[in-house]
Design a protein around this nucleic acid. Structure first.
Lengths: 212, 212
DNA sequence: GTCTATATAATGATAGAC
DNA sequence: GTCTATCATTATATAGAC
């Protein structure tokens, strides 16, 4: 199944980019070789150089494409806001398809920053909305909570190897989607810390970081 | 501040291992060079080869040491169970000290598996305990929830680059500790999903994965 | 245990033909 | 646009002296 139906796809340039994301994702940026990528794309190593200047430039082109892809996904979710649909997880997964491993590595390596920032912005918007109907004032800004929350969400993708091994099933698969969905519902619908414990923990932090 | 007071430290072998963890963490496994590690450790590249056979073997020795380190930390937490102390985050951070970046990379690359498994086991114990005082039956096993939760916790370390950049401060620093502590308290003490929404989401999953 | 020197292999980058 | 051939660099692995 082809993922992208961009008009500018099918071309050798697009094939190279796809192959690069595949190799970068599977082997990591450093270990992946231009020769290997070229072979997968069915072209010569020279052509890679011709289209993308350097290996680093090639990586940036991959990042840019990933962002473009996720932008499209986000727009779709934004226009179709069914709050109940926790299974947007599965849908995102399917849409990201063969690029999931690339996404995981890019994030862990500190790349794909526009993507991360966009997810944070989206989350921040959502949190700010939720804050309106909230009794107690938040202790930290929506931005901070959005960043932490986004990182936590992305941990599933980034740590998929560990998770899959621990659970004995591929978390980045349809079966994994269902299990993850149920787990997230359970976690999100339960308060992990009581209001009293939270207050106590907060004053512990106050004491720790005020006078020392 | 020296982290490890193991008797078998101080030796050249230990210095090499420390230097390796530092380089692997800062530059990644592939980019790090044996020569660079040797230089940091103040020895020749030949001696690295003498003590650890290959670069891969050196990496495995680092993993093993990391696990040993975290085992010690966990034991300490286990013997000192103050539930209020959210700031165990900061304490762990300080104890991991210069090895945090290595930990992040190792986890993302699927290495350091005994460490991840141990964190899951610890979390599972805690969750199973909490389940006892719970009205509704959990939809998924404690193991699954423990795995997902552990991954989420570790996301702070693994994605520290993204988080730090997004927030404009080093999340792996004392200031970061405080901010993270407050953010986690806020997140953990609030239910992100109502019981009704959860039920609706669950039946959506039922429908999705039963007959399709 | 520790070092220096070398062998060998792989890679990113480049130049130039078609 | 695409390819082949080559350069220059760099790093691991190795051998052997002290």
């Amino acid at each position: 199944m082809r993922i992208a139906n961009d008009p500018d796809d099918l071309t050798a340039r697009a094939r190279i980019r796809d192959a690069a994301m595949q190799h970068f994702g599977a082997e990591g940026f450093e270990r992946a070789t231009i020769r290997g990528i070229a072979e997968t794309a069915g072209v010569s190593s020279g052509l890679v150089r011709h289209h993308f200047g350097s290996k680093q430039d090639l990586r940036e082109a991959c990042d840019a494409y990933l962002v473009k892809l996720v932008r499209g996904l986000n727009a779709e979710v934004r226009d179709n806001p069914r709050a109940t649909d926790v299974n947007y997880v599965a849908k995102s997964r399917a849409a990201m398809g063969p690029y999931q491993h690339y996404l995981a590595r890019a994030l862990a390596e500190g790349a794909a920053t526009p993507l991360f920032d966009e997810l944070v912005a989206l989350s921040e918007q959502w949190i700010a909305e939720a804050d309106k109907g909230r009794a107690d004032p938040p202790d930290v800004s929506a931005k901070v909570r959005a960043t932490i929350s986004s990182a936590m969400s992305l941990s599933i993708v980034v740590l998929h190897q560990q998770i899959s091994r621990s659970l004995g099933l591929d978390i980045l698969s349809p079966e994994g989607d269902e299990l993850l969905g149920r787990a997230l519902i359970d976690i999100y619908s339960h308060q992990l810390m009581s209001a009293e414990d939270a207050a106590a923990a907060r004053s512990a932090l106050d004491k720790e970081y005020r006078h020392e």
